[in-house]
Computed example of a mutant assay.
Amino acid sequence: METQAPERTSLKFIILYKGIIATIMLLISLISAWSWRNFDTLATWAEINLINGEFQTVELILKPILNAGIPSLKLVARYTAVYGSLIIIALVGLWYEKFWSKILFVGLVAVPLPLEVKELIHDFSIIRLTIFILNLAVFIFLMIREFKTED
């Protein structure tokens, strides 16, 4: 079964988009893992910078990390590492058109959709709406691609 050119191009864009997302997730995992292992150092650094008047640095970078706490950072590090790794595995399989990767990838795209709806309801932003629309479009494209009837 040969894939049509526009469909293959769309799949390449999806692979690129989700590859960027997976890379960001793995970076978040590494930052979270480093942060909970060096939590005391970060707190000390934040305190010094607050004294020196570096409010923007502490506010933008360290406040979310320091407010999260070690248990939350551990959880974020673990889950983003697993999810990001699974996305990369599925993307490689999709690139080589492996059947198992289609099932895995559709599942991985569908899993966060309910959470994204919840986030949109409770904390609406244009960025969240854009991400939700992109992920929904990817999910719909994959479902149509996998379940369309062959002529």
Rank of each mutant, 00 (worst) to 15 (best):
M1W: 05
M1A: 13
E2H: 04
Q4K: 12
Q4V: 09
E7M: 08
T9H: 08
S10F: 01
L11F: 02
L11I: 09
K12A: 09
I15N: 02
K18E: 08
G19F: 03
I20P: 00
A22V: 15
A22Q: 12
T23K: 06
I24N: 13
I28F: 12
S29K: 01
L30N: 08
I31Q: 05
A33N: 09
S35W: 02
R37S: 01
N38M: 03
F39C: 08
D40H: 05
D40C: 01
A43D: 10
W45I: 11
W45P: 00
W45M: 09
E47I: 11
N49S: 10
L50R: 03
I51W: 02
N52Y: 14
T57R: 03
V58M: 10
K63F: 09
P64V: 11
I65P: 03
L66A: 08
N67T: 05
I70G: 07
P71Y: 01
S72A: 13
S72Y: 02
K74T: 02
L75T: 14
A77M: 07
Y79S: 14
Y79T: 14
A81N: 13
V82P: 01
Y83R: 05
G84A: 06
G84K: 07
G84H: 04
G84T: 07
L91H: 01
L91R: 02
V92Y: 06
V92D: 00
W95A: 10
K98Y: 13
F105N: 11
G107D: 08
V109C: 08
A110I: 03
V111W: 02
L113H: 05
L113R: 12
V117A: 14
K118T: 15
E119C: 11
L120V: 03
I121G: 07
H122T: 15
H122V: 15
H122K: 12
F124L: 15
F124Q: 14
I126Y: 07
I127Q: 04
L129I: 00
T130R: 04
I133E: 06
N135V: 08
L136S: 13
A137V: 12
V138M: 00
F139P: 05
I140H: 11
I144P: 03
I144K: 11
R145H: 13
F147P: 07
K148W: 09
T149A: 13
